[in-house]
Write a protein that binds this DNA or RNA. Structure first.
Lengths: 211, 211
DNA sequence: GTAACACTAGAACAGTGTGCAAGTAGAACG
DNA sequence: CGTTCTACTTGCACACTGTTCTAGTGTTAC
């Protein structure tokens, strides 16, 4: 008698890609914290074991999410005529893409897969640096300097829109007797405009490498 | 009869500071992953409840760890005679201190308390920027630009010594047909020298702010 | 001596990722 | 048609996480 009391034999009709897609959707909708195996299983109307069978582990799942999203990143057109402008544009695409899909970017940062995530855009940057005349070691230095800097800005920008609790950020500057000008303390206590700040910083870095 | 069957009444002779100190030692010895409430309790020969009674929660504990370590950060002497050199020196102190105690830095980064952690060194940087003639908004821009950049380098440097598995880092550049020079691909495939790279990047940024 | 307080332990809860063994639908083969 | 074999799905359990509730007891104050 097979009354299917356990439901073990049913076909869910889902494959690896479906799980990755659902996981990606879950992260984009409800954030990194929502990505638990049980939650994803519930979303797919399936048990966690099914996910494990198709995907292997949570780490593999995350890697696939990042890879999948990496392929979806649209390569915006590079703007500008001078070499500096075009490199700047390529660098900012990394920032803009990352900020546009904050949740996935957070996931990539937390799991150390940020390089994999943004790789297509980083290639474009490298191409633009070659077009500017850089090669080899010299190019690598410029490339890394830009990548790491953008990464730092992402880190701070993503954190600051996660914690909007009474601006504890700048309070440390005002509640203390450092020997700073009140004017300076005021400026440091306010929440920064990372977008504009990154623009300035990038221009400074790029100017030293592509001249 | 009080045969102390449950051990509930014994005095452990520990206070809040002892727990924070033990937690800090635990993190420094065995890394961030070792900081679990049960592990710390075992280290103190106590139950988790005792920790909760003294500290409150894991988040509070971590905050105290960061604050405690923040106070222990030695303020190295600023080197250099020109304004640029001295600002550079102050900026590098942030980097060096963070790298010297990687585990705590990782903890601070993961919990979003990096600002609290490095605040004393950031104050020194701000003072040096004022000494260079900067004030208010202008100083804040320079300060943030430097801080965020150093943060980005820390993020990458700390990750790269955590994952030393066959250099999957640069493999993405070689296994693909991007339109790049072999010379460039080679350079990008190698693992970067973050220390030297940061020095260059900092000089570029500082040069644009303090002239 | 007794009552209040400060502290500690035991046990449990809800949640996490993951592994093992059993079960079944559908395809392949006879 | 019946059998076997493979692909998949489930239930259950384990070890671990942070946290809380309840009860117990040494120490102190009255």
């Amino acid at each position: 008698m097979s009354k299917n009391a356990t439901n073990t034999g049913r076909r869910a009709g889902l494959d690896r890609n479906d799980m990755v897609a659902a996981a990606l959707a879950l992260v984009e909708a409800d954030g990194v914290g929502a990505l638990t195996m049980r939650r994803l299983a519930a979303e797919l109307d399936v048990t966690t074991n099914t996910i494990y069978w198709h995907v292997g582990s949570r780490d593999e799942l995350i890697l696939e999410i990042i890879r999948s999203h990496s392929r979806q990143i649209a390569e915006l057109p590079i703007e500008g005529t001078t070499a500096q402008e075009r490199v700047f544009s390529a660098a900012r695409h990394i920032w803009e893409s990352s900020m546009a899909s904050r949740s996935v970017t957070s996931l990539a940062h937390q799991t150390g897969t940020a390089a994999e995530h943004l790789h297509p855009l980083e290639v474009v940057l490298a191409q633009e640096l070659e077009a500017a005349g850089l090669r080899g070691e010299e190019l690598a230095r410029a490339q890394r300097s830009i990548q790491v800097t953008v990464g730092g800005f992402l880190l701070n920008a993503l954190r600051s829109d996660a914690s909007r609790e009474g601006d504890a950020r700048g309070a440390a500057w005002t509640d203390e007797d450092n020997g700073l000008t009140p004017e300076t303390v005021d400026a440091l206590a306010q929440s920064p405009d990372y977008d504009a700040l990154l623009a300035d910083t990038l221009r400074a870095i790029i100017a030293t490498h592509v001249g």
